[in-house]
């Protein structure tokens, strides 16, 4: 049996004025791919933010274990070092910082955390070039300011590039597929698939089955009002695609 990677138990979290996650439990083992589907506002992005340690959320109950460690005690950068990576729904623009420079800082910070040797400029450039090529990212794009003026699809592609450079053991994709044309979608899926092995795991948040057609999930969870209301295989995604969330929500009521 494969080892347990992430174990969320009875997690309650929210913002000052509102509880969003309500006794959420989820276990992800090494090598597994989990998909989460759920209506707008259900709290899917909140879950990914809490997992990465974003500011502004209050954890009011429950635990998160990652590789046997108490994840909630770690800083965001330590979580990244441990292997958590979030492909953000809305990547942040940073003017004045080139993609190149940013990626070099990120790659070396993570390598340092993992006890690996930092890359010098030449080594890094070589790695960057080959990974960018796989995702069809033009070298000119890497010289631009981080995400500034990037189209929605370009931003998602850059998120995927970061994911392949940082080699996470748990990649969380928060609507990585939204706003992508079909070629870009394939590219992102390929990027994700190339990361897959018996140790790395994926948590995929999506509204559409298309991405799941490329990345075959082991489990699909239906998520509503801050927790998982039903778990199963890919057939659940097919129901959502056809009929929406209605029958799942009714079953709960």
């Amino acid at each position: 049996m494969s080892e347990q990677l992430l174990k969320i138990t009875d997690l309650c979290a929210g913002v000052a004025e509102k509880q969003i996650l309500k006794n959420l439990s989820l276990t992800v083992n090494e090598g597994e791919v989990h998909a989460i589907m759920g209506p707008n506002g259900a709290g899917k992005s909140t879950l990914s933010n809490v997992l990465t340690g974003k500011f502004g959320y209050e954890i009011t109950g429950g635990t998160i274990e990652f590789k046997g460690k108490n994840l909630l005690e770690l800083k965001p950068e330590e979580r990244a070092g441990e292997g958590i990576f979030l492909c953000m729904q809305y990547p942040v623009e940073i003017s004045g910082v080139s993609v190149n420079n940013f990626l070099k800082h990120a790659v070396n910070a993570v390598r340092k955390y993992r006890g690996e040797k930092e890359l010098d400029a030449a080594e890094f450039l070589k790695l960057l070039k080959s990974e960018a090529k796989k995702l069809n990212i033009a070298p000119e794009m890497l010289k631009r300011e981080l995400n500034v003026g990037f189209s929605g699809g370009e931003k998602k592609r850059l998120e995927t590039l970061q994911m392949s450079l940082l080699q996470p053991s748990l990649a969380i994709l928060d609507e990585a597929d939204s706003g992508l044309d079909i070629d870009a979608l394939k590219m992102v899926a390929e990027g994700v698939n190339s990361l897959r092995n018996q140790h790395n795991s994926l948590l995929i948040i999506t509204h559409h089955i298309n991405l799941l057609d490329y990345i075959n999930p082991d489990f699909v969870h239906i998520y509503a009002d801050g927790r998982i209301i039903k778990s199963g295989g890919k057939e659940l995604a097919e129901i959502v695609e056809k009929n929406g969330y209605g029958e799942f929500l009714q079953a709960v009521e």
């Binding site: 965001p76 990244a80 990576f85 940073i94 940013f102 910070a109």
Partner: peptide
């Protein structure tokens, strides 16, 4: 936060900005 979530320590991220 974006930079931290990519592994860059807080102080380093601050300096980059």
């Amino acid at each position: 936060f974006y930079m931290q979530s990519r592994g860059i320590p807080y102080d380093e991220a601050k300096q980059i900005l």
